[in-house]
Design a protein around this nucleic acid. Structure first.
Length: 513
RNA sequence: GGCGGCAUAGCCAAGAGGCUAAGGCGACGGUCUGCAAAACCGUUAUCCCCGGUUCGAGUCCGGGUGCCGCCUCCA
């Protein structure tokens, strides 16, 4: 416990357990342990996975920027029914499938600029801890082995059951069996598997109950206590995991550890909804990260995901072409209005940063002490205030608007502002945008490189003939030099028809998509 | 059927009882420009309905309506 730890800025977050926004009081001052339910690696990740990874990513970034020491743990579920099923389909070992999609997940996360977790535990590396935990629960009579060698958690013995999802055991019992058949190996319909007896041909490990594998929920209980302790600060995941997954984690962990609080705060991200054009079954109802990144930059996707608070639902509008195209081709030509807007916004920020850097690169070094235009002076603090308040990324992004306008105005004209104030304001903006970029994982690239990469991506997407564009631009510049406006405008229309917009500036003509 | 969440401008979206309800997109008007584009400036809402608590409610409580999610190893 240090002096500075007490001075760290306050963080508030919404805890699913109470449904209220509360001040984060960490177990150990100045330090935060976060556990995130990571992917089950049986297929390519979709944008929902990106959202689930982004929520803790922003938390870790913000907490670290504010001076907290963070231990970020995100697991990989590499033993699971779906993996086994996929392996069987493809005639491969389950481990091969898991390894492949773990790699793909890492590749997606890296492209999306997600911080790597400090520890990334895999279920297959934690069998001893899992078995110990199941044994502990059996010893405490909180679990029982069935005749076939499966072990179930005895929900009737854990009084807190239902506290996260807001249900009572009585309610759940009433609705049990309505939608799924009750398994007669279980004492109660509410009981859930801690250990599943192996069927022939499935991956299996030795245990006191025979060959088998872990149930889904126990892994997170075992891995979180291994890497963060029996009690830790924040547990994150998608809303769908509240019940049963996280409810069961609480039962297992608090049961096994003698009623110690498991996670002190539960943070759940909302879902992505598909709106707009109704998607048919044949087209599938999800979009992979990989597909999206063929069409938009990773930062555009990040920005899009951050434009709505993590707890809310996010409408992912999709416009599919009307033509009678193959599913594959239709998906390749899909448009996403939300992403489109995000993409242009990110480009606007980078264009501003580029202009700012160019201006600062000329002339004398800037004296940082002294007056700065108001809109920019307060940006950093307001920005962080928004993020300290339940990691409110849309509010934080909103804070950037006025400074961006101010800087663009200053770049366009220094009129009415003392020269040193102008340069100092722009310099401050560039400096503080580094902190912004650090917190958001966005806007941190070199502006020129980003904008070029974005243009290339869009050119590829529409199959643009870049050489032809340059020819037309040259021809148009020649016409303009001759003040042949009719011809110049005709050429501009021709470019526009190709999707190219031109901008005539004092330093010549540039084009964009 | 049970549980939970959400309803703010044409669209998207902040708002943890109290300054004139952020911001973005779009639209309209203007500056700049050969004309444009970009950029900048300006305009563009009383918060689903009813009742209540309070000096004061978008923000709390009750009821209604409408969406959505979970109750199925789906982020």
């Amino acid at each position: 416990m240090t002096e500075t730890a007490h001075k760290l800025p306050e963080i508030h977050l919404t805890d699913t357990l109470t449904g209220e926004k509360v001040r984060l009081e960490t177990l150990e001052p100045g330090a935060v342990g976060i556990y995130c339910c990571g992917p089950t690696v049986y297929d390519m990740s979709h944008i929902g996975h990106a959202r689930a990874a982004l929520a803790p990513d922003v938390m870790v970034r913000v907490l670290r920027q504010l001076g907290y020491r963070v231990k970020y743990v995100r697991n990989v579920t590499d033993i699971d029914d779906k993996i086994i099923a996929r392996a069987a389909e493809q005639g491969l070992e389950a481990g091969v499938i898991a390894a492949r999609y773990t790699d793909e997940y890492h590749a997606d996360m890296q492209r999306l600029n997600m911080l790597p977790p400090d520890v990334e535990p895999r279920v297959s590396d934690h069998l001893p801890q899992i078995i110990d935990m199941v044994q502990e629960l059996v010893d405490q009579d909180l679990a029982y082995a069935a005749d076939d060698g499966s072990v179930y958690f005895r929900v009737t013995r854990f009084d807190g059951y239902g506290k996260l999802s807001g249900r009572s055991r009585e309610e759940m019992l009433e609705s049990a069996g309505i939608r799924i058949e009750v398994d007669d190996r279980k004492e109660s319909p509410l009981d859930f598997a801690l250990w599943k007896a192996a069927k022939p041909g499935e991956p299996a490990w030795d245990s006191p109950w025979g060959q088998g594998r872990p149930g889904w929920h126990i892994e997170c209980s075992a891995m979180s206590s291994t890497h963060l302790g029996d009690t830790f600060d924040i547990h994150t995941g998608g809303r769908d995991l509240i019940f049963p997954h996280h409810e069961n984690e609480i039962a297992q962990s608090e049961g096994a550890h003698g009623d110690h609080t498991f996670a002190r705060y539960w943070v759940h991200n909302g879902f992505i909804n598909f709106a707009g054009e109704k998607m048919s079954k044949s087209l599938g109802n999800f979009w992979t990260i990989r597909e999206i990144l063929k069409l938009y930059t990773p930062e555009a996707l990040r920005y899009f995901l951050m434009s709505v608070h993590y707890r809310s639902g996010l409408n992912f509008e999709v416009e599919l072409p009307e033509d009678d195209l193959s599913d594959e081709e239709a998906r390749r030509q899909a448009r996403f209005p939300g992403l489109e807007e995000a993409d242009e916004r990110v480009a606007y920020v980078y264009t501003t940063l580029q202009g700012a850097r160019e201006l600062l690169a000329t002339g004398k070094p800037v004296d940082r002490d002294g007056e700065v235009a108001e809109a920019v002076a307060g940006m950093r603090e307001s920005f962080l205030d928004a993020l300290r308040n339940d990691f409110n990324t849309p509010a934080a992004l909103g804070v950037l608007s006025k400074p961006l306008h101010e800087v663009n105005a200053l770049l366009a004209s220094g009129k009415g502002v003392p020269k040193d104030v102008r340069r100092r304001t722009i310099a401050r903006f560039v400096d503080d945008m580094e902190a912004v970029a650090d917190a958001l994982g966005c806007f941190g690239d070199d502006p020129a490189r980003y904008l070029a990469a974005r243009r290339d991506l869009k050119a590829d997407r529409i199959g643009l003939d870049t050489a032809r564009v340059n020819e037309l631009i040259d021809a148009r510049n020649a016409a303009r030099a001759n003040r042949d406006w009719a011809e110049a405008d005709r050429l501009r229309d021709e470019l526009a028809a190709m999707g190219v917009s031109v901008k005539d500036g004092p330093d010549g003509t540039v084009w964009d998509l």
